[in-house]
């Protein structure tokens, strides 16, 4: 079982990601904690709901969230993929999931996820990270303490500093 940074600790990760090729329309769905790609979810939604108590969703960064709003209640985990760490769309998606759609389950960053992005990612609503293979998760934990009091309001602290500043 691979590891995950969750709530700023290193934990075992029970979730498996399914590729769309592994789950065509008719093949049996694997059991256990599965992150279903959006295309599989859209194709076999009712079947997944009836066969799985815990459901995970796996999103590419070009996903339009609005049509998913009614489905968010089913997901324990939403994974947002970072094809490249410099692709910043996932930051807006996480923030929209938390602030606009009030999603309260786990939001994990997956793909090209690196030490130096963790601080900003936790600010916009991520709470779990599957680091890129070969990266030092223990050292990455230090990133959460990079800045003590940032200026902007975000998911971790809704009020910007100018509404909290004490002289």
């Amino acid at each position: 079982m691979s590891t995950l940074i969750k709530n700023k600790r290193i934990v075992a990760d029970p979730w498996q990601t399914l590729s769309p090729e592994e789950s065509p329309a008719a093949a049996p769905l694997p059991e256990g904690d599965i992150l279903f790609p959006l295309s599989v979810w859209q194709l076999r939604r009712n079947e997944i709901i009836s066969s799985h108590k815990r459901i995970g969703l796996w999103l590419e960064p070009d996903t339009d969230l609005a049509p998913l709003e009614a489905d968010l209640q089913y997901f324990v985990v939403i994974a947002i993929n970072f094809p490249k760490f410099a692709d910043g769309r996932g930051y807006s998606l996480a923030r929209l999931l938390r602030e606009r759609y009030h999603y309260e389950g786990e939001i994990r960053a997956t793909g090209d996820v690196l030490h130096d992005q963790l601080f900003l990612m936790q600010r916009v609503g991520f709470d779990a990270w599957a680091l890129k293979d070969g990266k030092d998760a223990a050292q990455a934990l230090e990133a959460f303490a990079t800045f003590k009091t940032p200026y902007q309001g975000a998911v971790d602290e809704p009020l910007p500093l100018f509404r909290r500043r004490t002289p």
């Binding site: 692709d87 923030r95 800045f147």
Partner: peptide, 16 residues
């Protein structure tokens, strides 16, 4: 200056 502070380490827009 207010824009400077707001844009500094803006968490959502560091990888445009």
């Amino acid at each position: 200056e207010i824009l400077r502070q707001w844009s500094t380490f803006h968490p959502e827009f560091a990888f445009l």
